[in-house]
Computed example of a mutant assay.
Amino acid sequence: MYLADEAWPDLESYFESESLALVPLGSTEQHGPHLPEGTDHIIAEAFARRAAEETGYLCTPTITVGVSPHHRQFHGTMSVTAPVFRDYVESLTRSLAEHGIDRVIYVNAHGGNVEHLREVGRRLRDAEVMYAIEWMWDESITDRIQEVFETPGPHGGPKETSLIQYLAGELVHEDRIEDARDGGLREFDESSGRVHGARTFYDAIDNTDNGVLGDQTDASAAVGEELFEAALDQLCQLCEWLAAQPFEDLMPNEHL
């Protein structure tokens, strides 16, 4: 069920019988010369909407701008400050609690949002308002991604390229994929951008001239479909697991 499509009287039965909601979040930021700036929120919304269709749980509208200051040098990147983002997401989530929702899955597709969503989840849990957790598609199928791609890359690489080729292929600049690989940073790991153990970079452009990491030429719509279905299965299972938990078991333990 997609909340924004429903008239309010038709939502009453859902809130009477269910207490879980999916909240998709992403970003509007550069994803290299070949992918749209909406890459993250397109992916997040696709997962949340499909999971809602598969499970019957509620999906809210998508939060399309996240915490993206590290992409600010590239044209069109939008961002909000971390405190504003956290407060907005917390306020939005609390509004769901007013209707009886007591557990939320943040269906997130932007790495820059992760730590802030975890903080919001902690605030809400500590206040015993609800249990809210963050989920990212690629973290649910890490082994499969490693099997499929030699250099997956954490941003604008073949995994995101494959998903957008599958979900919104008309937005992919196929003629720029080789340029994306050649103008970016193909190899990226925990040692990249570190000096004597210290992380020396703050912005994406410090590491990659065109904003992307990984080898995009490994991407395809067929692989994107495979990865999407595999991660969707994980999300649907998470929905069912979370819905089955007694609320008191999700709340903080008492002090020793």
Rank of each mutant, 00 (worst) to 15 (best):
Q146S: 15
G56Q: 09
H71M: 11
D102F: 02
M130E: 11
R103E: 06
T60E: 04
H70S: 15
P154E: 09
H116S: 13
C59V: 11
E115I: 08
E147C: 07
Q146D: 12
H71K: 09
A127V: 04
V84A: 15
V129M: 07
V120S: 00
V67N: 04
H116C: 12
A109N: 05
P69N: 13
F149V: 04
E54L: 07
H116Q: 12
T142Y: 06
T62Q: 06
R94E: 13
I164L: 12
P154I: 05
T142N: 09
E54K: 06
V80H: 12
V65M: 13
C59N: 09
F149Y: 14
D126I: 08
V114Y: 06
D138F: 14
I141Y: 02
D87T: 00
L117S: 10
Q146E: 15
P154S: 01
I145P: 01
E174P: 01
I105W: 00
R86H: 14
T77V: 12
P69V: 11
R125E: 08
R144I: 11
H110R: 12
E134N: 14
R122G: 05
T77W: 12
E147K: 05
P69E: 10
A82E: 11
S68N: 07
H99I: 10
E115V: 10
V129E: 12
Y131W: 02
L92G: 07
G100Y: 06
M136G: 12
T55I: 03
E53T: 03
V84F: 14
T93M: 03
H70C: 10
E174V: 11
P61R: 12
G111S: 14
E54V: 06
V65Y: 13
M78H: 11
N113P: 08
R86M: 15
G111C: 11
S68R: 06
A82Q: 09
E115L: 13
H173D: 15
P154T: 04
T93Q: 01
E128G: 00
